[in-house]
């Protein structure tokens, strides 16, 4: 469905996407990466808004640039706001459906049903300028799905949504996937993507760092040192014990904060309560830095550079 071969996109001297190679079959995928990682550039390349500086982009076997046939099968929800604030949500969605070649009647019907699907039926005749951010997000999603595309691309669609809105739209997207349609969902939040799909593309610095399911990505990380931070009553004693037990690869104490690097996190987590009790050390705070998405990216970047 999506095929990128050695795609590089330069903005002058700034690299947006760097030597990106990827092949995706129809299905649901999460595009995960921190802000500024190149997600939007990648989506702009896939939707034909940008032309790659190097390499080739093929969507459904064709270049997406000015590709009317592809656009008929594509629904796109951009990351930015960008909707006309002086028109109603209904007029906006209907207008965009008219641009899809629908008749007035078809566009009316499609706009109403899609706005109802995202919970905007009651407010659809109000000007967009009066909408909350969550309502705008819902309207953006409505314009993307109104023409019933085969392939939906969403760029940070949950931004500004309250928990109820996220839950509702999550269900809408799950139903969408359940109909056998394809989805590419970009976000910088792991849990947002995990709630929709378990297939990830991890991108950072314009590069594809890893792809696969969450389990597959974690499997890649096995064998890499995990870092655990502890605030405790006697960090020197605890550090000594962990080294003595040969569970820590290295320890570091800075201003009372003990940082432990280990390749045996499972064993450490299991045995730590025992060692703490035996050493009479009280822990006030414990954090695994590697549980954060950024740490995962950092580790993958280090792997990519050959530093791990």
């Amino acid at each position: 469905m999506i095929e990128l071969k050695n795609v590089t996109k330069l903005y002058g001297k700034v690299i947006g996407v760097n030597d990106f190679t990827l092949t995706l079959e129809p299905g649901a995928y999460g595009l995960l990466g921190p802000n500024g990682s190149g997600k939007s550039t990648l989506l702009n390349l896939i939707t034909g808004q940008l032309r790659p500086t190097l390499g080739t982009v093929r969507i459904l076997g064709r270049s997406p640039r000015n590709n009317a046939r592809l656009f008929r099968q594509l629904g796109y929800c951009p990351g930015g706001e960008g909707m006309y604030s002086d028109v109603t949500g209904y007029d906006w969605v209907r207008y965009l459906q008219r641009l899809h070649g629908m008749t007035v009647h078809e566009a009316d019907s499609a706009a109403k049903s899609s706005l109802a699907l995202v919970g905007m039926e009651a407010a659809m005749n109000r000007p967009i300028s009066s909408y909350s951010r969550g309502m705008r997000q819902r309207t953006k999603l409505a314009q993307a799905i109104a023409h019933n595309p085969e392939f939906l691309i969403l760029d940070e669609p949950f931004n500004g949504l309250d928990p109820i809105g996220r839950h509702e739209l999550t269900n809408v997207l799950r139903d969408w996937i359940g109909q056998g349609k394809s989805l590419l969902f970009a976000s910088h939040l792991l849990h947002e993507i995990e709630s929709i799909t378990h297939s990830f593309l991890l991108i950072c610095g314009g590069r594809l760092l890893a792809s696969g399911t969450a389990e597959e990505v974690h499997t890649m990380m096995v064998g890499l040192p995990n870092e655990i931070e502890l605030k405790c009553s006697d960090p020197y004693c605890l550090a000594s014990r962990l080294m003595g037990e040969r569970v820590a690869d290295s320890v570091r104490i800075v201003e009372g904060l003990l940082t432990v690097a280990t390749q045996q996190p499972q064993r450490l987590y299991e045995q730590l309560p025992v060692w703490l009790a035996e050493s009479n050390v009280k822990v006030t705070e414990m954090r695994s830095a590697d549980e954060s998405l950024q740490a995962l990216f950092n580790s993958l970047m280090k792997m990519h550079r050959g530093e791990l």
Binding site: N44, T47, G48, Q49, N66, A68, R69, F71, R72, L74, Y76, P78, G80, E81, G82, M83, Y84, L96, L99, H100, G101, Q143
Partner: peptide, 18 residues
């Protein structure tokens, strides 16, 4: 400027029609 271009440009012949 208002970042609405992308909504229009991903329609079939959207840019030309606009």
């Amino acid at each position: 400027e208002r970042r609405s271009w992308v909504y229009l440009a991903v329609r079939p012949h959207g840019a030309t029609a606009v």
